[in-house]
Amino acid sequence: MQHDSQTGTGETERQQYDFEGTDPTVAVIQSLANATGEDPTELESLFGHIDPDALNTLLLSSNRSDHDQVTTVSFTVDGQHVNVGCDGFVVVTEAD
């Protein structure tokens, strides 16, 4: 996992994960926890914002395909904007 954290008000939490070893939803939860300083078990559930199983399926299948385009999914959770790509990058910024 590559970690480039610049958390705080209006700052960015950017990490790269290996989706062969970490599911995209787990990566999102870990990144949200780092960005907010909260325990991962205390975070708001992703189910109200996105289907975690569909997120995993989409990003894992896109990661294994032979195309040059990066599939990216964006959504907002508890005041944090999340971008997660099939390349393993998860970027969390404070929502406007």
Results as ranks from 00 to 15, higher is better:
Ala35Ser: 13
Asp53Pro: 05
Thr25Asn: 12
Gln69Leu: 12
Ser74His: 06
Pro52Met: 02
Phe47Gln: 15
Gln15Trp: 08
Leu60Pro: 01
Glu38Thr: 07
Tyr17Asp: 01
Ile50Gln: 10
His81Ala: 12
Val26Arg: 08
Ala33Gln: 04
Val77Ala: 05
Val82Leu: 01
Leu32Pro: 10
Asn83Gly: 09
Val28Asp: 13
Ile29Tyr: 04
Asp96Val: 09
Gly48Ser: 13
Gln2His: 11
Thr57Met: 13
Thr71Phe: 07
His49Ser: 15
Ala27Cys: 03
Asn63Ser: 11
Asn63Leu: 12
Asp51Glu: 02
Thr12Trp: 04
Gln6His: 11
Pro52Thr: 01
Thr72Gln: 12
Val92Gly: 03
Val82Ile: 01
Gln80Ala: 07
Thr9His: 08
Glu13His: 15
Phe47Gly: 11
Leu46Arg: 00
Thr7Gly: 10
Phe19Leu: 14
Ala33Pro: 07
Ala33Arg: 00
Gly21His: 12
Thr93Arg: 15
Asp68Ile: 02
Leu60Thr: 08
Glu42Leu: 13
Glu44Ile: 00
Ala95Trp: 00
Asp53Ile: 11
Gly79Arg: 01
Gln30Gly: 05
Gly88Gln: 09
Glu94Lys: 04
Thr7Glu: 09
Tyr17Gly: 00
Thr72Val: 15
Glu20Met: 08
Ile50Leu: 08
Asp51Tyr: 03
Thr7Pro: 06
Thr25Gly: 04
Val73Asn: 05
Leu46Asp: 09
Asp87Arg: 11
Ala35Cys: 03
His3Val: 14
Phe75Gln: 05
Val92Asn: 05
Ile29Ser: 04
Tyr17Gln: 01
Leu58Lys: 12
